[in-house]
């Protein structure tokens, strides 16, 4: 973790020191994403440093506010150590331990995540850009929701939960909280305005008021996650 922070910090210091050689783009965007029983709207602001001789490649950082709205959704056990039995990069390829995966069904889910994002772009043609961005760290706020906890063995109970407040990008199920990411293609209409479309991957997470889950081996859990993928469309504005 410390190494990652050092690398990111060093990268941005390098970019600042070489500001004369790079071109800085400042832009904002609004994105709407439509999934199955869910919708999200995002407002983002980013600084993008254009790199290379032709300045086709861009790397940058920004901030993004994502508001998520869902209905009748099953949030499942979140911690990687429960779903995969381990932490670290290996969880990406590990199957879920079904006996450890319980769920909380929310009739309504609504949360708002404000995160620092990392952004990458590549200018394919003069007016067409491919991009990827991902939230790295931030916090989430939202109202407490009523839900129904459903255990693997058929037992269940009513419960209440609030959005997990701290967000941190790690690897796959190791992630904490609510994090947004997006692959997209962008068409620049003129010097200021552009439109974009793509796919959004969004992790949202609630923490129950009590540790409602006890796994067969006795571990307790209060974190439940919903993973949504959605088509996204948006507009961008350069400053």
């Amino acid at each position: 973790m410390k190494k990652s922070i050092l690398i990111i910090t060093a990268t941005f210091i390098f970019l600042h020191l070489n500001a004369q050689k790079t071109h800085l783009d400042k832009s904002a965007s609004f994105t709407a994403a439509f999934g199955s029983s869910n919708f999200s709207a995002s407002l983002a602001y980013q600084h993008l440093w254009k790199l290379g001789k032709k300045q086709k490649f861009g790397i940058g950082a920004g901030a993004r506010l994502t508001s998520y709205f869902g209905s009748n959704q099953y949030f499942t056990t979140a911690p990687a150590k429960l779903t995969s039995g381990k932490a670290g990069p290996g969880v990406f390829f590990a199957d879920d331990i079904v006996a450890n995966v319980d769920s909380v069904l929310f009739k309504k889910a609504q949360l708002n995540a404000l995160n620092v994002s990392v952004n990458f772009t590549y200018n394919v043609y003069k007016k067409i850009t491919l991009g990827f961005n991902i939230d790295a760290i931030g916090f989430t706020f939202g109202a407490k929701q009523n839900g129904s906890y459903l255990a693997n063995n058929g037992a269940g109970s009513a419960t209440t939960a609030k959005p997990t407040s701290f967000n941190l990008l790690l690897i796959s199920d190791n992630d904490l909280g609510s994090l947004n990411s997006e692959f997209y293609g962008q068409y620049q209409i003129n010097n200021k305005w552009g439109v974009k479309a793509g796919f959004q991957f969004l992790f949202t997470e609630y923490t129950t008021d009590t540790k409602v889950q006890t796994t067969p081996d006795g571990q307790k859990n209060d974190r439940f996650r919903f993973k949504s993928s959605a088509l996204s469309i948006g507009v961008t504005h350069k400053f």
């Binding site: 990458f120 690897i171 991957f201």
Partner: peptide, 21 residues
């Protein structure tokens, strides 16, 4: 870059339909 980034972003190749048994 995109492949590396997706490693962090994607949920992974897992079998889980989100429902209880």
């Amino acid at each position: 870059v995109l492949i590396a980034a997706s490693f962090f972003a994607l949920p992974g190749c897992k079998k889980n339909d989100g429902t209880t048994t």
